[in-house]
Design a binder for these strands. Sequence first.
DNA 1: ACCTGAACACCGTTCAAGT
DNA 2: ACCTGAACACCGTTCAAGT
Lengths: 190, 190
Amino acid sequence: LSDDRIVEAALKLAETRGRLEDVSMRALAQELGVPVMTIYNYVPNREALNELITDYLLRPVCVPSPEDGSWEQRLRRLERDARSALGRYPGVSLDPRGAGAAEATRLAEGAMSILESAGFDANDASLAFSTLFTFMLGQIEMDAMYASASSVAALEGFKREGDLSRDELFEFGFTAVLEGLKAVLPHSAR
Amino acid sequence: LSDDRIVEAALKLAETRGRLEDVSMRALAQELGVPVMTIYNYVPNREALNELITDYLLRPVCVPSPEDGSWEQRLRRLERDARSALGRYPGVSLDPRGAGAAEATRLAEGAMSILESAGFDANDASLAFSTLFTFMLGQIEMDAMYASASSVAALEGFKREGDLSRDELFEFGFTAVLEGLKAVLPHSAR
DNA sequence: ACCTGAACACCGTTCAAGT
DNA sequence: ACCTGAACACCGTTCAAGT
């Protein structure tokens, strides 16, 4: 029994049940075949389990290096990979509060350094980061809504079914946000 | 006892406790001075209560008319008002699933009609709406994080404390997203 | 020292009994 | 017909007793 085995069991249960947040400690213990309280030897409480899961999912996502392409390509790849890592499990949050979300911090710092390498000064980079992060947060929640509901009734009218997939909508939105940031913030790409 | 009194009691409790979602039916009943099960004569279940609350908060938000300014001004005002209506109570979601979120639908349709009046065709308007909605969703969640946590440790470094408030960050991000949409989608403002 | 059963203080909701 | 107490099937977590 280890942190990783606990996380993997939780993710397995999350696929069965709808959302990650309603995997209970009791169900998790049953899945692992251990008494409930045994889990508390590895995880201090339920909230810490969520952070453990976020870390686990974000760990394989890497921050692209300068030789991997232009700053825009690198940023897009970073956000795309982060989204697809988290997107499989609706309900996971990248709330970077608490010391547990080390991986979220690593990726946030990666995104910041890419923005700074694009020629945004520290202040503008943090503005751009904030906007991109906000968009990502909304994207992940939006993805979760679509994943956990068979019908998003009120949005059907705007979605134009079959028009664009969630992935395409993400790519479009990301491009739009990035173009906006370039238009609004002075920078010198290099 | 009425729907509105129930919602108001829930909001009052939400201010004391941190998040709206951990106002329990039992605590709500106690606040109202009625037995728990009495609430179920007005609200079918806990989830419906959330929709009732969203509707209540969004009801006073109005969709600006054409004479209220340019399409950009109207759109900004709509989103700003919606954000400030919901922002007071972290945990409220504008998930437009279920028939209960009638007000969210009204505002979504309002935003769509503003976009169409800006000269975006129906397809582009729905793309733009989707991007703006995603940004708003992230904004509201981000606001909730700041409101319910005394410290957002991992973000402190990027926030540059005292630099920009949450409100200013919203205005900046909104402008960026809108500029991006104008750059990416052909349209003819009128 | 490590592990864990029982218990505590909660949930939302069902359902049958009350008026 | 309307209302509601008790009960059911859950939670997360504490804590003391077990080995």
